[in-house]
Amino acid sequence: MKPMSTDAQTTPQSLTQRLANPTRFMELSGVILPWLSALAAGIILYGLYLTFFVAPPDYQQGETVKIMFIHVPSAWLGMMGYAMIAISSFGLLVFRHPLADVSAKAAAPIGAAFTLLALITGSLWGKPMWGTYWVWDARLTSVLILFFLYLGLMALRSSLDDEALAAKQTAVLGLAGVVILPIIKFSVDWWNTLHQPASVVKMGGPAIHPSILYPLIINAVGFSILFLALHMKGMRNEVLRRRVKALRMAEVEQAARGREASTAASG
């Protein structure tokens, strides 16, 4: 964050450099954010209208298919949040992009919230459909582990006092998680086939009727835009928090220098 800004003012900037400048990011996101939020709200409201007043009950699931309209977007955004953290971690460790850690830090609680929602709505769907809130099914288990990874990322960050160190260590964990996540997913899939009889109702595939697919897509788009808006807001807060911190440091420094000067004058 520190060395980039001084360089960027003297040399001609590429687009990524300009976006990398936190000041420029604040200007740009300040303009975009209200529009993004309004767009998210509009699409989600339309999606809710479709969900509750237009979409027919599923021939198999009945009205509980309405839970799928928020469950699927939540699960998808839980995964997208992790992808965002991974890309940001890569950006921090490899390119030392000044906004990368801001992005990774802002994405973690939002991604965790959506993952949690995927788990909650999933079990609320499971109770009437499978007769139980929780099944040790492959997909449920791997989403649960994803949730643990989010918790680990946030816990690791909060337990290191040095912010620069915390950023890099969290990024290392984020990237290690990317390598290991497919292995976990694959192992859990395998494990499920050994132990669970194929009782799982399958979503996806060509079985979805357009009358149900359409509201699902609208909701997915709406929640994705909401995710982006929340993420942008989180990043803005984080940039501000770092400015406050830098100003506080400057204040302490000034005070120290002032005291030094006064003791030099008196002694």
Partner: peptide, 14 residues
């Protein structure tokens, strides 16, 4: 424990 146990899942399962 929180960081490492999720990574142990594949080993445990197999």
């Amino acid at each position: 424990a929180l960081l490492v146990l999720p990574f142990y899942v594949p080993t445990l399962i197999f």
